[in-house]
Nucleic acid binder design. Sequence first.
DNA 1: TATTTTTAGTGTCGAAATAACACTTATTTT
DNA 2: AAAATAAGTGTTATTTCGACACTAAAAATA
Lengths: 246, 246
Amino acid sequence: MPLTLSKSLLKMHKYSKQTRHLLAVDCIIFGFDGETLKILLIKRGFEPEKGNWSLMGGFVEQNESLDQASNRILKQLTGIDGVYLEQLHTFGDTNRDPIERTVSTAYFALIDIHQYETQLSNDYHAEWFLLKQVPKLIFDHQEMVEAAKRRIRYKAALHPILFELLPARFTIPQLQILYESVFNTTIDKRNFSKRVLATGLLIKLAEKDKAGSKRGAYYYQLNMQNYYAKFQAFLNFIPNPDTLIL
Amino acid sequence: MPLTLSKSLLKMHKYSKQTRHLLAVDCIIFGFDGETLKILLIKRGFEPEKGNWSLMGGFVEQNESLDQASNRILKQLTGIDGVYLEQLHTFGDTNRDPIERTVSTAYFALIDIHQYETQLSNDYHAEWFLLKQVPKLIFDHQEMVEAAKRRIRYKAALHPILFELLPARFTIPQLQILYESVFNTTIDKRNFSKRVLATGLLIKLAEKDKAGSKRGAYYYQLNMQNYYAKFQAFLNFIPNPDTLIL
DNA sequence: TATTTTTAGTGTCGAAATAACACTTATTTT
DNA sequence: AAAATAAGTGTTATTTCGACACTAAAAATA
């Protein structure tokens, strides 16, 4: 025990004159309900801003990386492991948290909303909000959400990340609604299916989804080999690239 | 004085149970010498890894934002203010610095090498290295450089950032060499000049650059209004997008 | 059981963008 | 005067993109 202590003391504070900072991660969690994009928010449980809407976040602990911290926090809220989670940006303004200077690294997650909506932890009073009806958020979380929206659009225009929002089996009309929702536009369905199918990323299944229409639409699933191979070179669905900012 | 002290004590440690971390920024500084891309490295002046090649970096101080810290550090080394500087990624593995856990936010800078090569601070024993001949670097700086290379390619394929590497007046052959260097490819010069001129971003000047050739090439400068207006919708020079990763 | 309603699914053609390709011009050097 | 060097420029074929309308399947309804 004394050994452990002295070891840790030895290891600590070698850069002894430097200031140490609070470090947090915040997660912008996107889901798709079949019609529009949503994000998951929580009611903050402690001061300051207790009771106000907030991104799910938390402090980075001593012995975890940022990626580990963001995964831990995502799991705390949703019970989910192993979903798409990508570092977005680190927000480091000195006064972004009024209590004490805190630097926060924002991550965005893309999850299949249906798979998890029932297993949300109740501890956080989480709710899904339409992306177009996000309430006022604490601190600079609004800015984080805006940055995440820009990033998801930018990236989805070039890479097939939106499949992460869909279940393993999905129909082409579902996929089209998703793209139209993300880019806030409409796409001709003949051109859409032509281009999507031309990527070689989709495998047509025998079964149909009967829920969405009378006739039923064929299910597809991702060809995972092609998915990884072609992740970099995907479609360019940008309707007007002027609206996209990294 | 007692008032200031008590104020700062009041403000400090409101999140009293949370671990505080060392925070650093590291800068990947790109330059272009007219033929190939280079990056600026320093000889690290303190332990650990004293004397080894490193990115220019430093700890984030109490009352500065990350953006301020990166600008400060860039200026310390190069004397430069107001150049292109963009946050790249935050590296947060727990053991990336063997002395003490340090989270580092990497920034990349694009500078006009000729304008500043003489005013480098001598304090850091900085040297420009060909991007293809970067020496072994400390910690995870190699990884940072790789990420910066990917980002600059990715972004330059869609946005006119490479002009930041050129002087205010440049020729089309110079610009072409720059693009060929960044994308490690060759481009037909007829197609290149057609597309570049079609953007409307360039203003042709009366004077010629006589240094590069016997005949001389016309100087151009950026049309700054169009530059900002068209920043989002630029050329797509990606030779094979497969090689690009965000 | 026939009709209506609803959404899925598919092909063509003109326009625009892209990629391939070679010669002339200006200037300096020899 | 001739040779060497790099700048500058146009055309054509190919590919990609965008616009556009009807038929098919199944359920609901009359």
